[in-house]
Design a protein around this nucleic acid. Structure first.
Lengths: 140, 140
DNA sequence: CTGGATCCGGTTTGATACTG
DNA sequence: CAGTATCAAACCGGATCCAG
């Protein structure tokens, strides 16, 4: 029984395991955070703000792409609550609300950059996998 | 400072910005991948498999924690389709299905490790932010 | 007995319309 | 412009059923 995944990797999960004792409570807390942070819209908004610095409400939506106002509002609120974004309201008419990453949000953006680079590096391979999967499925 | 153990790699958004010509088609494709990969269960399953190498269906669910069989099946299928996990069926009774990360899945795990470290490093700060947010909201 | 497909109830999401 | 309100649709989880 070989417990080792053979692939050579840049990062190693053992780094994480070794650095932290396996505390169940902490583990649950971290999983909760991952569960909230590992969200489609959260990522996309994070990237938009990391890329452009400060954006108004509508501009965030425009940079993200296909997002409804509802999800934009909701996700932005959630990110504000978690301390990832800072929301500044200018009491003028018409309303003007600026969103930008906090320092913590910026650091998350940095951590996520690895995933972004991964996506760019592997998108062709992913599409190939999907085609192969579809063919395998159709072959039945 | 963060105990980020990344080797010679510095994660910086500028890397991405500088390296990528602004191709709208590619951008949409990458966003689509991020949208699929940035999923709570995908991440949690990815970690479980990266951590333990090879797991049976039920064991994956146990390592992940609170996941329904339905989501487990669905997410594993999706990950298999995208080429992140390999599914091996042993035609025995009782049934026995092994799941493990492909090389591409392992590389995603590596890229995502930075996010995990971030979550561990900032969970206290996040909770503080939530409390502050709640207090701010209640003060109104 | 395990992997997974199906049906049902509650929650989340999305499209549209409306307000300050 | 920056949201809120509302309703339909899609989704998620749980229980159940099925196949090997």
């Amino acid at each position: 029984m070989n417990p080792v995944v053979s692939a050579p990797r840049i990062y190693n999960w053992d780094d994480r395991k070794g650095a932290q004792p396996l505390d169940p409570a902490l583990d649950g807390l971290v999983k909760d955070i991952i569960g909230k942070v590992a969200d489609k819209w959260t990522m996309l908004i994070l990237e938009a703000l990391a890329d452009h610095g400060t954006l108004r409400f509508s501009d965030v939506g425009r940079k993200v792409g296909d997002i409804s106002q509802k999800m934009l509002t909701k996700t932005l609120r959630q990110m504000e609550e978690d301390g990832l974004v800072q929301r500044v309201v200018h009491p003028v008419i018409p309303p003007h609300v600026d969103y930008s990453l906090t320092e913590m949000g910026g650091s998350l953006g940095g951590a996520f950059c690895g995933v972004w680079l991964w996506a760019e590096a592997h998108h062709a391979q992913i599409e190939a996998s999907r085609k192969a999967f579809a063919a395998r499925n159709a072959a039945v």
